[in-house]
Amino acid sequence: MTDLLARRLLFVTGKGGVGKTTVAAALGLLAAEQGKRTLVCEVEPKGDLSAAYECGPTPFKGREVGPGLTAMSMDTEASLREYLRLIARVPVVGRIGPVATAFDFVATAAPGIREILTVGKLCYEVRERHYDLVVVDASATGQVIGQLAAPSGINELVRVGLIRSQTDWMIEILADPAVTGAVIVTTPEEMPVSEAVDLAGRLGRETAVRLACVVANRVLPELFGHREEEVFERLCGRSEKAAVAKQLGVSVEAVSSVFAAARLAVTIRRDGAGHLEQLRAGIGEEVPLVYLPYLFGRAYGLRAIRQVAESLGEEL
């Protein structure tokens, strides 16, 4: 587990809304604090990463958001231009007109083109050792498999051409478990867990990338141990609640609401624990599983990212 940040390329994925960006941003922060030159890349440029770091826009060329920490957003057109300039050495990039729109159509039709430009850029940063660690706020469950499988899959479609000749080194980086790992983020809820389990299976079957770790985000604290629970049940009795209300000088209804809220908390927690058991059973014993506490306060922005990074630091 401690070697998670010793890898060079981490793809953070999971169902939408489970906190992928938060976890990716926190991993980046943690790595940078450990002295690693770190790049965090948002694959879908929705601005979530800049919201997480509370910085301005994070362009393709990168933006320094802290000591040793750079954030960027993927842009497949920019990636294509960079690729043409650096690798294909096409001199006329500036003059080939609206690459983006024409390219959009080709990329829509030909699977893997867009994906290869995304993964290719990330692998390139790893290969060139511009950074010690590249953390990817990757696409959600639906698309990430296509991205990770692109270098192998593209061989089927593109029989000749430069892209084809460029995939071998990418595959080498992606397939080395010491270099590259996937991190699946989930929450203790039904759909996120079942998607996480499904994704864990597909990663193994359809891509060369190994699952490095699963993060269960927003896990509620356990309120009571066994003895506490017995006492709690007794306190919920009518005469006990009445005694409490009388002693405190508040209404019985108000005391009941407070106790009911605790019961709801216990129920939600227990419900979640059931899903976490399914998660554990689904991903297997050998995959490290990290729990992150539910943040009752603001779950957004740099303060939340720091909190999550701290929890991750303790767990890793």
Partner: peptide
């Protein structure tokens, strides 16, 4: 056409042909 030159070099003409056929 420069666009095709580049596309051809990068993607390979077979793919481009497939794409064009389809469209």
């Amino acid at each position: 056409k420069p666009f095709y030159q580049v596309a051809d070099r990068v993607l390979g003409s077979q793919l481009l042909q497939d794409v064009a056929d389809f469209f």
